[in-house]
């Protein structure tokens, strides 16, 4: 039954979107190897349920089109409505400002100060006092504004991380 196949594909896509959103990802510039494996694991499990025992080419094409359509609709909604974008991506979160940690945020997003320091080191900052503001971006990256920049060149906007 075609409708059951399409429903399964749509459900699989929506469910994965929700799952990836609530599982959250460890911040950092790149995914760790284990996170890659995890992604394939989650994707593959969903795929098994989506395809079921109907491995025909027609079935595959129908489901690919369904998933692509779902993705298109979601992208459109995200572009059109700010609230929807917030729901899908979350908002950037300040982890540290004026040399105080936002403890509530850190606890909720499961970030250690080690993770912040890791990103700081990649920008050549040696200790925590060199950080003015640390922000967890909505796409999972931590960006850091060093405190030095502000004092030396006040007129220039602080450079964001690459």
């Amino acid at each position: 039954m075609a409708i059951f196949i399409i429903a399964r594909a749509a459900f699989g896509y929506m469910f994965l979107v929700l799952m990836v959103r609530v599982v959250g990802r460890r911040p950092g510039k790149q995914l760790t190897p284990f996170e890659f494996v995890l992604i394939f694991y989650l994707g593959g499990l969903t795929l098994t349920g989506m395809v079921g025992s109907e491995g025909s080419l027609t079935n595959a094409i129908t489901q690919i089109i369904t998933v692509a359509l779902c993705h298109y609709v979601l992208s459109y909604l995200r572009f059109r409505f700010t609230t929807f974008a917030k729901i899908l991506d979350g908002t950037p979160l300040v982890l540290m400002e004026k040399s105080t940690w936002r403890t509530e945020t850190l606890k909720r997003v499961n970030i250690q100060d080690d993770d912040v320091m890791h990103v700081a080191r990649q920008q050549g900052i040696k200790d925590l006092s060199g950080i003015k503001t640390a922000v967890l971006e909505s796409f999972g990256e931590i960006t850091i504004v060093p405190s030095r920049v502000d004092e030396e060149e006040k007129s220039d906007p602080p450079s964001s991380s690459q």
Partner: peptide, 16 residues
Amino acid sequence: VNEIAVGEDLAFQRKW
């Protein structure tokens, strides 16, 4: 936040 354009929305995030 601190003169840096961040666009944080903590109220929304708490709801989330």
